[in-house]
Design a binder for these strands. Structure first.
Lengths: 113, 113
DNA sequence: TGACACTATGTCTGATATGACATAGTATTC
DNA sequence: GAATACTATGTCATATCAGACATAGTGTCA
């Protein structure tokens, strides 16, 4: 994956799902980014639902507030592994993750919700 | 994630799903490993279905045969990102990935106890 | 206003994953 | 057996990611 492309997307202020290949972004890249964004959103939701601050979550994860922020921001520097293991630590199940991944996709043929 | 634990598991010849916490393996770690194994299997299946050798797939991925082998072997040194983007390049959809992830899980939902 | 809690962003250093290469194992065919 | 194609495993240099820290932005409340 080329993180630089994603950075460009974000710099441009785009919600990735809506662009597809507005840049040189390959389909696979776009889908991967959408999956990550789905996980990001899921993480934030779950954290809030648990009534935790980023600092508190960071403690649970044995990480730092800045990393949590980046995770939730969909920063290119965070891996899927980190997102997933964080979600798991928050009690997400495989089914939850599967849903988050599919929720991250923007509809391949149509953009129907 | 602690890759060392997984290495130990594999060294012991275990299919991860069957052990849960036979080692100091946390629940979250176990689930993550199972998800990766699900993706590994899915990758091998998809490659074979496409009639590709590891070398050929490696070319498509702009990677190397050894890395493909490790991916399919569930080697601890391969990330979820790599597995997922490889699968996407082979034409898998988000839905396919979601299924592979859930397929990788062994038991009931981990949460309720 | 100031103080406070929360979140965002940039950067550093150490850890880990990556592709590449070598090499060994496994069939299969001649 | 030799030769071929495919796959597995180990190692290495480099690229990327991790946690940590500083610091800036945001919102709330007294």
């Amino acid at each position: 994956m080329k993180n630089t492309k994603r950075a460009k997307l974000e710099a441009a202020g785009w919600a990735v799902g809506s662009v597809k290949e507005f840049l040189g972004l390959s389909d696979a890249d776009a889908v991967l980014i959408n999956m990550k964004l789905g996980l990001s959103r899921s993480l934030r939701d779950r954290r809030k639902k648990c009534g935790l601050s980023q600092v508190q979550l960071a403690e649970q994860l044995q990480s730092s507030q800045s990393r949590v922020a980046k995770m939730e921001a969909g920063d290119p520097s965070v891996s899927m592994d980190l997102l997933v293991s964080s979600l798991l630590l928050l009690g997400a199940t495989s089914a939850d993750l599967a849903k988050a991944i599919r929720g991250g996709e923007k509809g391949k043929g149509r953009h129907a919700a």
